[in-house]
């Protein structure tokens, strides 16, 4: 018997979908996420085929992976198929650092639409103006009353990563904040 994967946001799928077209909101669950602590990520970048972000509050992507800057020696690797904790730890070798599978620690919600920044501005104090937060921006901050990792993609696309236990709150908040734009 193999157990089914469940996400707490599954119950919100329809309500989030109903925000379209003002806001397209959908969970992207069950992605492999690895929290990597290292002061020198160059070897890891080579193994994964994507450079690690050198600038705070940005993310990089390539080779099916994304690497999010979380701190001066801390990164979140959203890994492609086949890359797991062992693979990345192997790449780290004997250098100082750590690799932890945190796949289920957070879930992701993709947001897209003309009102993405408006909706987020109801709860996020970080300046999300395209000039201040261009594509590639990745900030850890508060959205309303929960912590989030906020990735700005090109156009009007944003991905929010939220602690799994807060995901329901985030979904409820998004639905409420978007009401005005429906």
């Amino acid at each position: 018997m193999t157990a089914d994967l469940t996400s707490l946001l599954a119950a919100w799928t329809d309500r989030l979908a109903a925000l379209a077209p003002a806001l397209t909101a959908a969970e992207r669950p069950f992605r492999t996420q690895l929290t990597v602590r290292t002061a020198d990520p160059s070897a890891l970048g080579e193994t994964l085929g994507v450079g690690f972000p050198a600038v705070p509050c940005t993310f990089t992507s390539g080779a099916g992976a994304e690497v999010l800057w979380l701190g001066p020696d801390e990164f979140l690797v959203v890994a492609p198929e086949g890359v797991n904790e062992e693979v990345v730890r192997g790449a780290l070798g004997s250098s100082r650092g750590s690799v932890v599978d945190t796949s289920a620690q957070r879930t992701a919600v993709d947001l897209e639409g003309p009102h993405v920044r408006d909706v987020l501005a109801h709860g996020c104090a970080v300046d999300l103006h395209p000039a201040a937060a261009p594509a590639g921006t990745c900030v850890q901050t508060l959205l309303a009353r929960t912590g989030v990792i906020l990735q700005v993609r090109d156009g009007d696309r944003v991905t929010l990563l939220v602690r799994s236990s807060f995901a329901g709150y985030l979904a409820a908040w998004l639905c409420d904040a978007a009401t005005e734009y429906l």
Binding site: L8, A11, A144, F166, Y169, W173, D176, A177
Partner: peptide
């Protein structure tokens, strides 16, 4: 503002909550 009712304070739940 909207910090009232179910949004007054985040409600954290576990995966087994349902």
């Amino acid at each position: 503002g909207r910090d009232r009712g179910e949004l007054h304070d985040p409600v954290r739940v576990t995966p087994i909550h349902p």
